[in-house]
């Protein structure tokens, strides 16, 4: 199982600032960490500390001012020019109302001209696996919040990404839906063995879903601490893990780290 231990993503000394006529706002300052293949990592931090900026940089939507983002492609043919495939899930599902669920799910394939029979077969399989097949011809507004978020996940998964970036994907859902959808999505990600990086402001969510939690400091954000999560439970589903004996300790630890940050004077003002 050598591959499991191999690092998939490596951030080296990453810095990023926002510029406006009022001045410069340093968002990220010297961020370095590695993510192993197949690992589920959560990032928590005070609000507005630049968590989403970090994901945008990893997804290549923005370019860092200094530092490097290195992908070690662990796929069989290791060619250096092969760009990593990144799946990005946003806070809202952003399913398009003018497309059916099926058409929404194949959006990425359409954009990348990848509508091959094999891919379409995968689409059908995923829709069937996640109980959306009979809703494939429905419009998004006819589905529940949880189903929409599952459809959004399938839209990301059909691209067969090397790494999944989840930018608070459950925060727009109500509490009950949120528990069940996060549990669903977590088991989907675990069963497919995908590497995932989750941003959240919900500490319990981070503890119950992730194997490792990175705490970011207030802006300019740095990695404040790196906490591996080990829960002594046979059933490691997100709902069950909330009952683990260690859960409370992790929660208190995280809460302390975050609230320390909240009481600390901000070094930079301005909004991201």
């Amino acid at each position: 199982m050598e591959q499991i231990e191999q690092s998939l993503l490596e951030l080296k000394d990453l810095c990023y600032s926002y510029h406006s006529l009022e001045g410069e706002t340093i968002a990220l300052s010297h961020i370095s960490f590695q993510i192993k293949k197949g690992e589920f990592t959560a990032i928590v931090g005070p609000s507005g500390c630049g968590k989403s900026t970090l994901l945008s940089l990893i997804a290549g939507l923005d370019t860092p001012e200094s530092g490097e983002i290195i992908f070690h492609n662990t796929g069989q043919p290791a060619s250096p020019e092969q760009k990593p495939r990144i799946g990005y899930m946003l806070q809202h599902d952003h399913l398009f109302e003018w497309r059916t669920i099926y058409k929404n799910v194949i959006l990425g394939l359409e954009i990348n001209h990848m509508l091959t029979p094999e891919k379409l077969e995968l689409v059908t399989k995923l829709l069937k696996d996640y109980d959306l097949y009979k809703f494939r011809d429905k419009k998004p507004s006819e589905l529940s919040g949880g189903m929409k978020q599952r459809a959004a996940l399938i839209r990301t998964l059909v691209m067969e990404p090397d790494i999944l970036l989840l930018d608070e994907p459950f925060s727009a859902l109500d509490y009950q839906t949120r528990l069940s959808v996060s549990s669903d999505i977590c088991s989907i990600i675990r069963s497919t063995g995908k590497t995932a990086l989750l941003i959240t402001h919900d500490l319990s969510e981070a503890i119950s879903l992730a194997e490792r939690i990175l705490v970011l400091s207030r802006r300019p954000a740095t990695v404040k601490c790196d906490i591996p999560v080990h829960l002594t439970l046979t059933d490691n589903s997100p709902l069950a893990s909330r009952n683990a004996p260690e859960f409370k300790d992790y929660f208190n630890l995280l809460w302390k780290e975050i609230s320390d940050e909240n009481y600390r004077q901000p070094e930079q003002s301005g909004k991201i």
Binding site: A59, L61, I86, Y88, L90, Q91, H92, H94, F96, W98, R99, L107, G108, E110, I111, N112, R155, M159
Partner: peptide
């Protein structure tokens, strides 16, 4: 955010226009 979604799926400005802006 919808336009951002197109970029995260690997699309460009053209895709953003024809897949989001125009139908939207």
């Amino acid at each position: 955010e919808k336009i951002k979604l197109i970029y995260t799926l690997g699309g460009g400005k053209r895709d953003a226009f024809f897949k989001v802006v125009l139908p939207g």
